[in-house]
Structure formats: C-alpha cells, structure tokens
Simulated scan of single mutants.
Amino acid sequence: MDDAEGTMDDSYDVVVVGGGAAGLAGALTLVRARRSVLVIDAGSPRNAPATHMHGFLGHDGRSPAELLERGRAEVTGYGGLIRRGTAIAADPLSGGGFLVRCGDGSTVRARRLLVTTGLVDELPAVEGLAERWGRDVLHCPYCHGWEVRDEPVAVLATGPVSVHQAQMWRQWSDRTTLLAHTWELTEEDRELLAALGVAVVEGEVTGLAVGADDRLTGVTLAGGGAVECRALVVAPRFTARSGVLTGLGLPMTALERDGRVIGTCVESDAATGATALSGVWVAGNVTAPMAQVAGAAAQGVQAAVAINADLIEEQGRRAVEAYRAAG
C-alpha cells in the first residue's frame, strides 16, 4: 500500500475498510479501547466536491477535508495505522478472521472487519451537471439549504422523489420551481405543487448556464428556453461501494422509494452495524445512504463498540477453555 503512516504489521484486531467519517470514528473508538487497528483508505470520500459541511455539531461550516485530516491525526495519535490504498477482497480464514487483499498485491489479516466504503452518487445525464455536483448542483437541503435560502431553486424531476424534493426545498425558498424534464407528473402531483406555489416548467433540461463568477445562473431547455436558478436539485441513484462485501457473499439490498429502486445498500443491524456474516460490521453510507456526516460518524462509533464487545467475549471464551485445559 502507498503513503504509509507508521510501520505495518501483518495482523490486526480490526481492519477498517474506508477512511471517511464512519471509518475514522470507528477506528478512533477502537484504538482508544487498546485494539490494534489498520484503516485502509482509497482516498475518495463521497463529499469531496463539497467545500463545507453542515449540521455536525461543533463542526458546522468546516470543510470535509479538514475533518478527515483531523480524524486521521487523532487515530494515529493513539497508535492506529492508516494506509492509502484499495481493499479489493477479503477471504474468510479457516481458523477465524479474514485475509484482506489490496490492489497493490499486499495482504493483511484481521480478526474483525469494519467496512465503511460509502456509496457513489450516480447523477442524471445532463451536460455540465456532474462538474457542479456539491457546489450548486445539490441533493440534501439539510446540508445546503441554508446557503441558498430565498434564492431561485430548481428541482430536476427524474422520478417520484422529485415531487417530495420540491416540497422540502420550498421550506428554504418560496422561489422553488420543478422542472418536469423526463418525468411524467400525475394530476395529484400538479395539484399539490400548485397548492404549495411551486411552479412547474415543461421540457427536457439540456444544459446548465454559468455566470462570469462561476456560479450557476440557470438551466437551458430543449426548446430553446431557459429557467433561472441559483441551485439545481437532483435525485442521484445511491450505489453502495460493495466490492469487498459482495466478495464475502453479502448481497446488496435494493433501496426503494414509492415503488422505484433508487439505489443499493448492505443490510445490517440498526443498533450495531452487524451484518449477516459473523465478524463483519458496516457503518455509514454503505448501509445507510441517507446518513449525513454526523450520522455516519455515530454509526462508526456504535459498530466499534459492538466489535470490541465481540472481541472481549471471544477472549473470555478462550481464557475459560485454557483454564479448564490447565486444570
């Protein structure tokens, strides 16, 4: 693996796959519990395009990159190790635990796995949209709504969730417009939007308009028209980064909204992050696609506590077996 921070061993109590908020919070909890921990981080956090994060008490307005930098320093400060690289597979070992294989050919052993690989936002195919993701092409009003309050906001309709998005974003701006784009609205949808004062604009969106200050000014339509907006709201498809997990035989679960699949995730126990496979836990967006940074970090802590408890129980069982054998 690249970019070593410390000297790597070949075996750890816990290997954390993914170095975002969930993974680092879990790793921090475990190293403070005096566990040997290795974090394998591919360095591609979901929120990398965003310059600031919000709603995380004590960290509101902080950049995601700064939060992760601080988190890495805290983990390594307690003796945890972090490696830049990609875990591509994990193989169960006959004696218990896992052999984690990385993209550079290296391997490490782990008694337990915490997978926090997150998800990929698959965006609508509109020219110029992906380049502005996390800036003024947005999804979550709790993350970005305050910053565009009272500004003209346009919601790109690509499915039934778009009507719900228009309802939500109207909370932050009464200048919210729904762009029908490729979605056929029902009469009930149109009545609701009209009652709420949300304008509906017909026509497929073909591109984005950007001002000289590199700020979004609107969208262009197939018929040659344009709609002013300072933020464009989209509904991505949430696809779990699940390579390591599917290789272990853990299937992805379809995430549905109003009868339509909007993504995939890994099922886990809501309280602990335990998966159906003994020894494997998950936390963050790989299992909870709607979780914000604070929620993902909290899940990482919960999973770490459960992992440590599991290791303590195993140690107790082995101690009793050795005690009986010696007697």
Rank of each mutant, 00 (worst) to 15 (best):
114 L>V: 00
108 V>A: 13
102 C>F: 04
162 S>Q: 06
136 D>C: 10
61 G>M: 08
312 I>S: 08
172 W>E: 10
120 V>E: 14
245 L>V: 06
220 T>N: 02
127 E>L: 11
250 L>D: 13
279 G>A: 02
18 G>T: 02
128 G>H: 13
25 A>E: 10
9 D>S: 15
256 E>Y: 07
16 V>Y: 00
124 P>D: 07
103 G>I: 02
159 G>A: 12
83 R>V: 15
215 R>H: 14
215 R>G: 10
142 Y>W: 15
161 V>R: 10
145 G>W: 13
8 M>R: 15
34 R>M: 15
135 R>C: 00
217 T>D: 09
36 S>W: 03
226 A>W: 01
42 A>Q: 11
239 T>C: 10
60 D>L: 02
266 V>C: 01
2 D>C: 00
228 E>G: 01
120 V>S: 12
153 V>I: 15
138 L>D: 12
156 L>F: 08
182 T>R: 15
138 L>Q: 09
28 L>H: 06
321 E>L: 12
85 G>C: 13
191 E>S: 14
18 G>F: 08
202 E>V: 04
61 G>A: 04
21 A>E: 13
40 I>K: 07
133 W>C: 05
286 V>I: 05
139 H>E: 07
201 V>R: 14
111 R>L: 07
223 G>T: 03
79 G>L: 11
153 V>N: 08
30 L>Y: 12
62 R>W: 08
208 L>R: 05
206 T>H: 09
102 C>G: 03
276 A>M: 04
65 A>Q: 10
166 A>I: 04
326 A>K: 08
151 E>V: 01
316 G>Y: 10
296 A>W: 11
110 A>C: 06
173 S>I: 07
153 V>K: 03
172 W>Q: 13
96 G>A: 04
52 H>N: 06
162 S>T: 09
311 L>W: 04
53 M>L: 15
311 L>R: 03
59 H>F: 10
214 D>M: 00
116 T>P: 11
48 A>C: 00
230 R>D: 12
51 T>W: 04
113 L>I: 03
219 V>Y: 07
23 G>R: 02
243 G>W: 05
315 Q>F: 04
289 P>D: 04
225 G>I: 07
197 G>V: 09
282 V>N: 00
87 A>P: 09
150 D>E: 13
260 R>L: 06
252 M>C: 14
249 G>V: 01
319 A>H: 12
250 L>I: 15
97 G>V: 05
253 T>D: 14
38 L>H: 03
8 M>F: 00
184 E>T: 15
155 V>D: 07
268 S>A: 14
144 H>G: 01
101 R>M: 02
56 F>Y: 15
287 T>L: 00
191 E>R: 15
219 V>K: 04
318 R>I: 05
211 G>I: 11
117 T>D: 05
100 V>E: 09
28 L>R: 12
